[in-house]
Design a protein around this nucleic acid. Structure first.
Lengths: 213, 213
DNA sequence: GCGTGTGAACCTCTTCACAGCG
DNA sequence: CGCTGTGAAGAGGTTCACACGC
Protein backbone atom coordinates (compact mmCIF):
# COMPACT_ATOMS: atom_id res chain seq x y z
CA UNK A 1 0.00 0.00 0.00
CA UNK A 2 1.11 3.53 -0.73
CA UNK A 3 1.31 5.95 2.18
CA UNK A 4 -0.94 8.78 1.03
CA UNK A 5 -0.78 12.08 2.85
CA UNK A 6 -4.17 12.90 4.25
CA UNK A 7 -5.67 15.23 6.83
CA UNK A 8 -6.15 14.25 10.44
CA UNK A 9 -9.81 15.12 10.16
CA UNK A 10 -10.26 12.52 7.49
CA UNK A 11 -8.46 9.88 9.56
CA UNK A 12 -10.64 10.72 12.50
CA UNK A 13 -13.73 10.18 10.34
CA UNK A 14 -12.37 6.86 9.09
CA UNK A 15 -12.15 5.81 12.72
CA UNK A 16 -15.81 6.71 13.13
CA UNK A 17 -16.78 4.77 10.02
CA UNK A 18 -14.95 1.75 11.37
CA UNK A 19 -16.78 1.97 14.67
CA UNK A 20 -20.07 2.36 12.87
CA UNK A 21 -19.36 -0.60 10.58
CA UNK A 22 -18.55 -2.83 13.54
CA UNK A 23 -21.93 -2.00 15.04
CA UNK A 24 -23.63 -2.65 11.71
CA UNK A 25 -21.91 -6.00 11.47
CA UNK A 26 -23.22 -6.93 14.91
CA UNK A 27 -26.71 -5.94 13.82
CA UNK A 28 -26.27 -8.30 10.88
CA UNK A 29 -26.25 -5.67 8.15
CA UNK A 30 -24.35 -6.63 5.02
CA UNK A 31 -24.54 -3.49 2.90
CA UNK A 32 -24.36 0.17 3.88
CA UNK A 33 -24.70 3.24 1.68
CA UNK A 34 -22.68 6.42 2.09
CA UNK A 35 -25.91 8.04 3.24
CA UNK A 36 -26.44 5.57 6.07
CA UNK A 37 -22.85 5.87 7.16
CA UNK A 38 -23.15 9.65 7.01
CA UNK A 39 -26.31 9.80 9.11
CA UNK A 40 -24.73 7.56 11.72
CA UNK A 41 -21.70 9.79 11.99
CA UNK A 42 -23.53 13.10 11.71
CA UNK A 43 -21.94 14.30 8.46
CA UNK A 44 -22.79 14.53 4.75
CA UNK A 45 -22.79 11.59 2.37
CA UNK A 46 -20.47 13.47 0.03
CA UNK A 47 -17.88 13.67 2.77
CA UNK A 48 -18.07 9.93 3.32
CA UNK A 49 -17.63 9.15 -0.36
CA UNK A 50 -14.79 11.63 -0.64
CA UNK A 51 -12.95 10.16 2.35
CA UNK A 52 -13.25 6.64 0.99
CA UNK A 53 -12.45 7.49 -2.61
CA UNK A 54 -9.08 8.90 -1.59
CA UNK A 55 -7.85 5.37 -0.96
CA UNK A 56 -9.63 3.39 -3.61
CA UNK A 57 -12.99 2.36 -4.98
CA UNK A 58 -14.56 0.28 -2.28
CA UNK A 59 -18.20 0.72 -3.21
CA UNK A 60 -20.52 -0.63 -5.85
CA UNK A 61 -22.56 1.85 -7.82
CA UNK A 62 -26.25 1.43 -7.37
CA UNK A 63 -25.99 -0.55 -4.15
CA UNK A 64 -23.39 0.74 -1.66
CA UNK A 65 -20.52 -0.67 0.39
CA UNK A 66 -20.17 -4.22 1.67
CA UNK A 67 -19.86 -3.88 5.46
CA UNK A 68 -17.21 -6.58 5.94
CA UNK A 69 -15.03 -5.55 3.03
CA UNK A 70 -15.16 -1.85 3.82
CA UNK A 71 -14.28 -2.46 7.45
CA UNK A 72 -11.28 -4.57 6.46
CA UNK A 73 -10.15 -1.88 4.03
CA UNK A 74 -10.52 0.93 6.55
CA UNK A 75 -8.63 -1.03 9.18
CA UNK A 76 -5.92 -1.61 6.61
CA UNK A 77 -5.76 2.13 5.89
CA UNK A 78 -5.68 3.08 9.56
CA UNK A 79 -3.18 0.35 10.29
CA UNK A 80 -5.47 -1.02 12.98
CA UNK A 81 -5.93 -4.50 11.55
CA UNK A 82 -3.52 -5.65 14.22
CA UNK A 83 -3.49 -2.79 16.74
CA UNK A 84 -0.35 -2.06 18.78
CA UNK A 85 -0.35 -2.76 22.54
CA UNK A 86 -1.08 0.13 24.89
CA UNK A 87 0.66 0.87 28.17
CA UNK A 88 -0.46 3.33 30.83
CA UNK A 89 1.93 5.57 32.73
CA UNK A 90 0.44 6.68 36.02
CA UNK A 91 -1.70 4.46 38.21
CA UNK A 92 -3.77 7.24 39.70
CA UNK A 93 -7.52 7.47 39.36
CA UNK A 94 -7.48 8.21 35.62
CA UNK A 95 -4.88 5.61 34.73
CA UNK A 96 -6.72 2.85 36.55
CA UNK A 97 -10.08 3.99 35.25
CA UNK A 98 -8.87 3.76 31.67
CA UNK A 99 -7.63 0.24 32.27
CA UNK A 100 -10.94 -0.85 33.73
CA UNK A 101 -13.26 1.05 31.39
CA UNK A 102 -14.04 -0.04 27.87
CA UNK A 103 -12.98 3.32 26.49
CA UNK A 104 -10.38 1.80 24.19
CA UNK A 105 -13.31 0.63 22.09
CA UNK A 106 -14.04 -2.52 20.14
CA UNK A 107 -11.22 -2.08 17.66
CA UNK A 108 -8.96 -4.59 19.37
CA UNK A 109 -6.75 -2.36 21.51
CA UNK A 110 -5.60 -4.04 24.70
CA UNK A 111 -3.75 -2.63 27.66
CA UNK A 112 -0.49 -4.42 28.16
CA UNK A 113 0.48 -3.02 31.54
CA UNK A 114 0.35 -0.03 33.89
CA UNK A 115 3.20 1.79 35.65
CA UNK A 116 3.82 4.23 38.47
CA UNK A 117 6.81 5.70 40.28
CA UNK A 118 5.11 5.80 43.67
CA UNK A 119 6.29 2.82 45.76
CA UNK A 120 2.97 2.87 47.57
CA UNK A 121 1.16 2.12 44.31
CA UNK A 122 3.57 -0.44 42.84
CA UNK A 123 2.25 -3.96 43.25
CA UNK A 124 -1.31 -2.79 43.79
CA UNK A 125 -4.06 -4.39 41.78
CA UNK A 126 -5.76 -2.34 39.05
CA UNK A 127 -8.45 -4.29 37.26
CA UNK A 128 -6.69 -7.51 36.33
CA UNK A 129 -3.24 -5.92 36.19
CA UNK A 130 -0.68 -5.33 38.87
CA UNK A 131 0.92 -1.89 38.89
CA UNK A 132 4.56 -2.17 37.88
CA UNK A 133 7.50 0.07 38.65
CA UNK A 134 8.26 2.78 36.14
CA UNK A 135 11.80 1.40 36.02
CA UNK A 136 10.53 -1.59 34.07
CA UNK A 137 9.02 0.53 31.35
CA UNK A 138 12.06 0.76 29.06
CA UNK A 139 12.34 -2.98 28.92
CA UNK A 140 8.71 -3.42 27.92
CA UNK A 141 8.86 -0.73 25.26
CA UNK A 142 11.99 -2.22 23.76
CA UNK A 143 10.36 -5.65 23.68
CA UNK A 144 7.55 -4.45 21.43
CA UNK A 145 8.40 -2.98 18.06
CA UNK A 146 5.42 -0.62 18.25
CA UNK A 147 3.60 0.59 21.30
CA UNK A 148 1.29 3.41 22.34
CA UNK A 149 1.78 4.99 25.75
CA UNK A 150 -0.94 6.83 27.62
CA UNK A 151 0.34 9.44 30.07
CA UNK A 152 -2.04 9.78 32.99
CA UNK A 153 0.21 11.25 35.66
CA UNK A 154 -0.72 14.14 37.91
CA UNK A 155 1.08 17.34 38.78
CA UNK A 156 3.90 18.40 36.50
CA UNK A 157 5.32 14.90 36.05
CA UNK A 158 4.17 14.64 32.43
CA UNK A 159 7.38 15.89 30.85
CA UNK A 160 9.51 13.48 32.90
CA UNK A 161 7.27 10.59 31.93
CA UNK A 162 7.50 11.54 28.28
CA UNK A 163 11.27 11.77 28.52
CA UNK A 164 11.48 8.17 29.74
CA UNK A 165 9.15 6.96 27.03
CA UNK A 166 11.05 8.73 24.27
CA UNK A 167 14.39 7.41 25.46
CA UNK A 168 13.02 3.90 25.43
CA UNK A 169 11.90 4.36 21.82
CA UNK A 170 8.17 4.98 22.13
CA UNK A 171 6.84 6.88 19.09
CA UNK A 172 3.18 7.47 19.97
CA UNK A 173 1.78 9.08 23.09
CA UNK A 174 -1.68 10.03 24.28
CA UNK A 175 -1.47 12.51 27.12
CA UNK A 176 -4.02 13.64 29.67
CA UNK A 177 -1.70 16.34 30.99
CA UNK A 178 -2.86 19.92 31.08
CA UNK A 179 0.44 21.37 29.92
CA UNK A 180 1.79 20.77 26.41
CA UNK A 181 4.80 18.43 26.31
CA UNK A 182 8.02 18.80 24.34
CA UNK A 183 8.81 15.81 22.18
CA UNK A 184 11.17 15.09 19.28
CA UNK A 185 9.85 15.54 15.76
CA UNK A 186 9.41 11.82 15.18
CA UNK A 187 7.30 11.19 18.29
CA UNK A 188 3.62 11.92 17.93
CA UNK A 189 1.91 13.31 21.01
CA UNK A 190 -1.82 13.80 21.18
CA UNK A 191 -3.82 15.29 24.03
CA UNK A 192 -7.12 14.71 25.71
CA UNK A 193 -8.03 18.01 27.29
CA UNK A 194 -11.12 17.88 29.44
CA UNK A 195 -10.68 21.47 30.55
CA UNK A 196 -10.56 22.76 26.97
CA UNK A 197 -13.68 20.79 26.09
CA UNK A 198 -15.42 22.40 29.06
CA UNK A 199 -14.27 25.83 27.85
CA UNK A 200 -15.66 25.18 24.37
CA UNK A 201 -18.98 24.06 25.85
CA UNK A 202 -19.17 27.06 28.15
CA UNK A 203 -18.40 29.44 25.31
CA UNK A 204 -21.02 27.96 23.04
CA UNK A 205 -23.68 27.89 25.76
CA UNK A 206 -23.11 31.49 26.77
CA UNK A 207 -22.88 32.71 23.19
CA UNK A 208 -26.30 31.26 22.48
CA UNK A 209 -27.74 32.96 25.53
CA UNK A 210 -26.40 36.31 24.42
CA UNK A 211 -27.85 35.77 20.95
CA UNK A 212 -31.25 34.90 22.41
CA UNK A 213 -31.70 38.26 24.02
CA UNK B 1 -20.18 42.40 24.20
CA UNK B 2 -21.16 41.32 20.74
CA UNK B 3 -21.45 37.63 20.00
CA UNK B 4 -19.06 37.19 17.11
CA UNK B 5 -19.23 34.04 15.06
CA UNK B 6 -15.90 32.27 15.24
CA UNK B 7 -14.49 28.85 14.54
CA UNK B 8 -14.22 26.15 17.17
CA UNK B 9 -10.54 25.87 16.40
CA UNK B 10 -10.00 29.45 17.42
CA UNK B 11 -11.97 28.97 20.65
CA UNK B 12 -9.91 25.91 21.45
CA UNK B 13 -6.74 27.97 21.00
CA UNK B 14 -8.11 30.73 23.23
CA UNK B 15 -8.57 28.07 25.90
CA UNK B 16 -4.90 27.15 25.49
CA UNK B 17 -3.82 30.78 25.73
CA UNK B 18 -5.79 31.14 28.93
CA UNK B 19 -4.14 28.08 30.43
CA UNK B 20 -0.75 29.36 29.39
CA UNK B 21 -1.41 32.81 30.83
CA UNK B 22 -2.45 31.33 34.18
CA UNK B 23 0.87 29.51 34.34
CA UNK B 24 2.74 32.68 33.38
CA UNK B 25 0.94 34.58 36.11
CA UNK B 26 2.02 31.99 38.65
CA UNK B 27 5.59 32.33 37.43
CA UNK B 28 5.24 36.06 38.05
CA UNK B 29 5.45 37.17 34.42
CA UNK B 30 3.69 40.43 33.65
CA UNK B 31 4.08 40.73 29.88
CA UNK B 32 3.94 38.11 27.16
CA UNK B 33 4.48 38.51 23.42
CA UNK B 34 2.55 36.69 20.75
CA UNK B 35 5.76 34.80 20.03
CA UNK B 36 6.06 33.51 23.60
CA UNK B 37 2.41 32.52 23.69
CA UNK B 38 2.84 30.81 20.33
CA UNK B 39 5.88 28.80 21.37
CA UNK B 40 4.11 27.67 24.51
CA UNK B 41 1.12 26.46 22.54
CA UNK B 42 3.06 25.04 19.62
CA UNK B 43 1.67 27.32 16.92
CA UNK B 44 2.73 30.42 14.96
CA UNK B 45 2.78 33.93 16.36
CA UNK B 46 0.65 35.13 13.47
CA UNK B 47 -2.07 32.71 14.49
CA UNK B 48 -2.03 34.06 18.04
CA UNK B 49 -2.28 37.68 16.91
CA UNK B 50 -5.04 36.79 14.45
CA UNK B 51 -7.07 34.98 17.11
CA UNK B 52 -6.79 37.86 19.54
CA UNK B 53 -7.39 40.62 17.01
CA UNK B 54 -10.77 39.16 16.13
CA UNK B 55 -12.10 40.38 19.45
CA UNK B 56 -10.23 43.59 19.98
CA UNK B 57 -6.84 45.15 20.37
CA UNK B 58 -5.48 43.75 23.58
CA UNK B 59 -1.78 44.24 22.91
CA UNK B 60 0.63 47.10 22.94
CA UNK B 61 2.88 47.57 19.93
CA UNK B 62 6.53 47.17 20.69
CA UNK B 63 6.00 45.36 23.99
CA UNK B 64 3.30 42.69 23.91
CA UNK B 65 0.28 41.70 26.00
CA UNK B 66 -0.23 42.30 29.70
CA UNK B 67 -0.74 38.85 31.23
CA UNK B 68 -3.48 39.83 33.68
CA UNK B 69 -5.46 41.94 31.26
CA UNK B 70 -5.29 39.46 28.43
CA UNK B 71 -6.37 36.61 30.68
CA UNK B 72 -9.37 38.61 31.89
CA UNK B 73 -10.30 39.44 28.31
CA UNK B 74 -9.98 35.88 27.09
CA UNK B 75 -12.06 34.58 29.99
CA UNK B 76 -14.65 37.20 29.13
CA UNK B 77 -14.68 36.02 25.50
CA UNK B 78 -14.92 32.36 26.45
CA UNK B 79 -17.53 33.12 29.07
CA UNK B 80 -15.42 31.36 31.69
CA UNK B 81 -14.98 34.30 34.06
CA UNK B 82 -17.54 32.59 36.24
CA UNK B 83 -17.64 28.99 34.99
CA UNK B 84 -20.85 26.95 35.19
CA UNK B 85 -21.05 24.01 37.62
CA UNK B 86 -20.36 20.53 36.27
CA UNK B 87 -22.22 17.35 37.13
CA UNK B 88 -21.17 13.80 36.33
CA UNK B 89 -23.59 11.13 35.17
CA UNK B 90 -22.24 7.68 35.88
CA UNK B 91 -20.26 6.78 38.99
CA UNK B 92 -18.19 4.05 37.37
CA UNK B 93 -14.43 4.14 37.18
CA UNK B 94 -14.26 7.05 34.73
CA UNK B 95 -16.89 9.16 36.44
CA UNK B 96 -15.22 8.87 39.83
CA UNK B 97 -11.76 9.35 38.36
CA UNK B 98 -12.82 12.63 36.76
CA UNK B 99 -14.18 13.85 40.07
CA UNK B 100 -10.97 13.02 41.88
CA UNK B 101 -8.49 14.06 39.21
CA UNK B 102 -7.58 17.66 38.47
CA UNK B 103 -8.48 17.25 34.81
CA UNK B 104 -11.00 20.06 34.92
CA UNK B 105 -8.01 22.37 35.05
CA UNK B 106 -7.26 25.58 36.89
CA UNK B 107 -9.95 27.63 35.18
CA UNK B 108 -12.35 27.43 38.09
CA UNK B 109 -14.60 24.55 37.08
CA UNK B 110 -15.96 22.61 40.04
CA UNK B 111 -17.90 19.38 40.16
CA UNK B 112 -21.25 19.92 41.81
CA UNK B 113 -22.32 16.30 42.18
CA UNK B 114 -22.23 12.80 40.71
CA UNK B 115 -25.11 10.46 39.85
CA UNK B 116 -25.79 6.84 39.05
CA UNK B 117 -28.83 4.63 38.49
CA UNK B 118 -27.29 1.57 40.12
CA UNK B 119 -28.66 1.23 43.69
CA UNK B 120 -25.41 -0.48 44.69
CA UNK B 121 -23.49 2.68 43.86
CA UNK B 122 -25.88 5.28 45.25
CA UNK B 123 -24.69 6.59 48.60
CA UNK B 124 -21.13 5.45 48.02
CA UNK B 125 -18.32 7.91 48.56
CA UNK B 126 -16.45 9.24 45.54
CA UNK B 127 -13.71 11.65 46.49
CA UNK B 128 -15.51 14.11 48.77
CA UNK B 129 -18.91 13.56 47.15
CA UNK B 130 -21.59 11.00 47.81
CA UNK B 131 -23.09 9.36 44.73
CA UNK B 132 -26.67 10.49 44.33
CA UNK B 133 -29.59 8.81 42.59
CA UNK B 134 -30.14 9.71 38.98
CA UNK B 135 -33.70 10.60 39.94
CA UNK B 136 -32.44 13.71 41.68
CA UNK B 137 -30.74 15.00 38.58
CA UNK B 138 -33.66 16.99 37.12
CA UNK B 139 -34.04 18.93 40.31
CA UNK B 140 -30.37 19.91 40.38
CA UNK B 141 -30.30 20.93 36.73
CA UNK B 142 -33.41 23.06 37.15
CA UNK B 143 -31.89 24.75 40.18
CA UNK B 144 -28.93 26.04 38.17
CA UNK B 145 -29.55 28.28 35.23
CA UNK B 146 -26.55 26.89 33.39
CA UNK B 147 -24.82 23.59 33.90
CA UNK B 148 -22.50 21.23 32.06
CA UNK B 149 -23.12 17.50 32.31
CA UNK B 150 -20.44 14.89 31.72
CA UNK B 151 -21.77 11.52 30.58
CA UNK B 152 -19.53 8.73 31.82
CA UNK B 153 -21.87 5.75 31.73
CA UNK B 154 -20.97 2.34 30.34
CA UNK B 155 -22.72 0.09 27.89
CA UNK B 156 -25.39 1.66 25.72
CA UNK B 157 -26.89 3.78 28.48
CA UNK B 158 -25.58 7.04 27.02
CA UNK B 159 -28.66 7.91 25.00
CA UNK B 160 -30.96 7.35 28.00
CA UNK B 161 -28.75 9.54 30.16
CA UNK B 162 -28.77 12.28 27.54
CA UNK B 163 -32.55 12.06 27.29
CA UNK B 164 -32.91 12.75 31.01
CA UNK B 165 -30.47 15.65 30.86
CA UNK B 166 -32.20 17.24 27.88
CA UNK B 167 -35.63 16.94 29.46
CA UNK B 168 -34.35 18.65 32.57
CA UNK B 169 -33.05 21.54 30.47
CA UNK B 170 -29.32 20.86 30.26
CA UNK B 171 -27.80 22.54 27.19
CA UNK B 172 -24.17 21.38 27.28
CA UNK B 173 -22.88 17.83 27.45
CA UNK B 174 -19.47 16.22 27.35
CA UNK B 175 -19.74 12.54 26.56
CA UNK B 176 -17.28 9.69 26.91
CA UNK B 177 -19.59 7.28 25.09
CA UNK B 178 -18.34 5.42 22.05
CA UNK B 179 -21.55 5.84 20.09
CA UNK B 180 -22.75 9.23 18.85
CA UNK B 181 -25.81 10.55 20.69
CA UNK B 182 -28.92 12.18 19.28
CA UNK B 183 -29.67 15.55 20.78
CA UNK B 184 -31.91 18.50 19.91
CA UNK B 185 -30.42 21.33 17.88
CA UNK B 186 -30.04 23.63 20.88
CA UNK B 187 -28.11 21.16 23.01
CA UNK B 188 -24.38 21.01 22.38
CA UNK B 189 -22.81 17.60 22.73
CA UNK B 190 -19.06 17.10 22.54
CA UNK B 191 -17.17 13.83 22.74
CA UNK B 192 -13.97 12.53 24.21
CA UNK B 193 -13.05 9.53 22.14
CA UNK B 194 -10.07 7.63 23.44
CA UNK B 195 -10.45 4.91 20.83
CA UNK B 196 -10.36 7.42 17.96
CA UNK B 197 -7.25 9.07 19.40
CA UNK B 198 -5.62 5.65 19.52
CA UNK B 199 -6.58 5.07 15.89
CA UNK B 200 -5.06 8.38 14.85
CA UNK B 201 -1.86 7.56 16.70
CA UNK B 202 -1.68 4.08 15.19
CA UNK B 203 -2.25 5.43 11.72
CA UNK B 204 0.42 8.05 12.04
CA UNK B 205 2.95 5.66 13.54
CA UNK B 206 2.45 3.01 10.86
CA UNK B 207 2.42 5.57 8.06
CA UNK B 208 5.83 6.81 9.13
CA UNK B 209 7.18 3.26 9.20
CA UNK B 210 6.00 2.67 5.67
CA UNK B 211 7.56 5.92 4.54
CA UNK B 212 10.88 5.00 6.19
CA UNK B 213 11.36 1.94 4.06
C1' DG C 1 13.86 48.88 17.01
C1' DC C 2 10.29 45.87 18.47
C1' DG C 3 5.89 43.67 18.31
C1' DT C 4 1.01 44.28 17.16
C1' DG C 5 -2.81 44.28 13.89
C1' DT C 6 -4.25 43.21 9.22
C1' DG C 7 -4.89 43.20 3.97
C1' DA C 8 -3.76 39.86 0.64
C1' DA C 9 -2.11 35.54 -1.06
C1' DC C 10 -2.19 30.94 -0.23
C1' DC C 11 -3.72 26.57 0.92
C1' DT C 12 -6.83 23.05 2.63
C1' DC C 13 -11.17 21.10 3.30
C1' DT C 14 -16.14 20.90 2.21
C1' DT C 15 -20.09 20.96 -0.71
C1' DC C 16 -22.33 20.74 -5.05
C1' DA C 17 -23.83 18.44 -8.92
C1' DC C 18 -23.46 15.14 -12.33
C1' DA C 19 -21.30 11.54 -15.31
C1' DG C 20 -21.04 6.74 -15.27
C1' DC C 21 -21.51 2.12 -13.73
C1' DG C 22 -24.18 -1.85 -11.77
C1' DC D 1 -33.12 3.79 -11.44
C1' DG D 2 -29.86 4.19 -7.39
C1' DC D 3 -25.60 5.19 -5.56
C1' DT D 4 -20.70 5.77 -6.21
C1' DG D 5 -16.69 8.52 -7.54
C1' DT D 6 -15.05 13.05 -8.80
C1' DG D 7 -14.20 17.62 -11.37
C1' DA D 8 -15.32 22.18 -10.21
C1' DA D 9 -16.87 25.78 -7.25
C1' DG D 10 -17.08 27.57 -2.77
C1' DA D 11 -15.95 28.43 2.05
C1' DG D 12 -12.85 28.72 5.78
C1' DG D 13 -8.50 28.88 7.94
C1' DT D 14 -3.52 29.83 7.85
C1' DT D 15 0.62 32.21 6.60
C1' DC D 16 3.06 36.09 4.75
C1' DA D 17 4.73 40.49 5.02
C1' DC D 18 4.40 45.07 6.15
C1' DA D 19 2.33 49.54 7.85
C1' DC D 20 1.71 51.59 12.13
C1' DG D 21 2.17 52.77 17.03
C1' DC D 22 4.90 52.45 21.29
Amino acid sequence: MIAIKVSEKSIRRLSHYARCLRLARIRGEVIMTSQQLATNCGISSAAVRRDLSIYGEFGKQGSGYKVDDLLINIEEILGTTDPPPVIIVGAGSIGCALLISGLAGTGGYTYDSIYDNDPAKIGKQCGNKQVRSIDEISEVIRKHKEIIAVIAVSGGAGQDALQMLVEAGCKAVLSFTLEPLNAPEDVEVRYIEVSTELDVLTHSMRRKERADQ
